[in-house]
């Protein structure tokens, strides 16, 4: 089962490598990874998506919590949450295809952020699933380059992951 684990950790050199190293060391999967500083410069927020049965996920969260640099973490998929992945996708757009590509981008509420004589670069934000659907809709023949931020997530309502 897919899980989104969001981690508040010390913004220290080496902290990220401890988290990533844990996954390879213990044979867990990382599907996506997103990390940046927070409003408190001493803290980073890391969101990762992973797959595993309940037992594996329990071990992952326990092992992460055990890392000295990890302050707190939450499995967002345990409750209502919002997830967003940001994609920049460069597609071939020539002749009549230019309109078709634009229409598809509009349907997905994407924005064309750069235009060239033969290419569009489209920005799209949403769940990982929505982004996957857009990639499928564009088709391999059109896609020149894809870059995704990895999932970032936050709980719905008043629930907060903070110190």
């Amino acid at each position: 089962m897919r899980r989104i684990i969001s981690i508040l950790m010390e913004n220290e050199p080496g902290a990220l490598s401890r988290v990533v190293g844990l996954f390879s060391q213990r044979g867990y999967n990382i599907d996506s990874l997103n990390v940046a500083a927070t409003e408190d410069p001493t803290l980073s927020r890391l969101t990762l998506t992973t797959f595993g049965d309940d037992r594996v996920i329990e071990q992952i969260t326990k092992q992460l919590n055990k890392l000295v640099d990890v302050v707190k973490l939450v499995d967002l998929t345990e409750g209502a949450h919002i997830e967003r992945d940001l994609m920049l996708i460069k597609v071939r757009a020539t002749g009549v295809e230019r309109d078709e590509v634009k229409r598809t981008a509009d349907i997905f509420r994407g924005q064309i952020v750069d235009v060239g004589p033969n290419v569009y670069t489209i920005q799209l934000a949403g769940t990982a699933e929505k982004l996957d659907a857009f990639v499928a809709a564009m088709g391999d023949a059109h896609i020149l380059e894809v870059v995704r931020s990895g999932v970032a997530g936050i709980s719905r309502g008043e629930k907060v992951l903070s110190l």
Partner: peptide
């Protein structure tokens, strides 16, 4: 050293 010892320490400091 911090990298090489990372999987076999409880914690490390540079």
């Amino acid at each position: 050293m911090v990298g090489i010892s990372r999987p076999i320490v409880k914690h490390s400091f540079m």
